[in-house]
């Protein structure tokens, strides 16, 4: 891998990372702030959840909606966050090499003693790194925000859930 190109690609996405991270943090802040209300109205929430079709309840883990894990699964990890990460991945991943070629900056890069294969691998690795950075932001936000919202989920559980979400995102072939 070409480390200077990897680091430069990450740096080039600084503004994008900041923008998406702010959005994710805002989303988590809203969801966590609502959780105490959901927890204190468990019976009504359960009645509400029961009104959904069985398949829908299974997909979004609505049976456990009143629990911390169920709440986060339904509100964040079942659809919203994976969709956000897919959107980020597709936006940045689709132009993994074409942006340099279209801009013309690849002309000088390809005149250097580097192979196109290494160039492509480095660019893909950097884009994956950018997504991983966003994942880290999300993980920190949940780990730090959960206690504030009186939501007891272990750090490890967050990591497992995030990894699962990541697998879900990377399983979408269009990202690479």
């Amino acid at each position: 891998m070409l480390l200077p190109l990897f680091l430069k690609t990450i740096r080039d996405h600084t503004r994008g990372i900041a923008g998406w991270a702010t959005g994710i943090l805002a989303l988590i802040a809203v969801q966590l702030s609502v959780y105490p209300t959901v927890r204190d109205t468990t019976s009504r929430v359960t009645d509400f959840a029961d009104s959904f079709p069985e398949a829908f309840k299974k997909i979004f883990r609505m049976d456990e909606y009143g629990t911390p894990v169920g709440y986060l699964s339904t509100e964040l990890f079942s659809a919203t966050l994976p969709l956000i990460f897919i959107a980020v991945g597709v936006t940045w991943g689709a132009r993994v090499a074409t942006d340099e070629i279209e801009a013309g900056t690849a002309d000088i890069l390809f005149s250097l003693p580097i192979s196109r294969r290494r160039f492509l691998i480095t660019r893909i690795a950097a884009k994956v790194g950018v997504l991983a950075l966003l994942g880290l932001v999300l993980w920190f936000a949940l780990v730090l925000g959960a206690p504030v919202a009186d939501l007891s989920v272990s750090v490890l559980a967050f990591a497992v859930v995030l990894m699962t979400a990541a697998v879900f995102v990377f399983d979408r072939r269009d990202i690479l």
């Binding site: 002309d107 000088i108 005149s111 003693p113």
Partner: peptide
């Protein structure tokens, strides 16, 4: 790859960062 390490290139359509 090895040959390009001995070459300097200045492109006609210049694009830098």
């Amino acid at each position: 790859r090895a040959t390009r390490s001995r070459i300097g290139y200045l492109p006609g359509d210049l694009a830098l960062y």
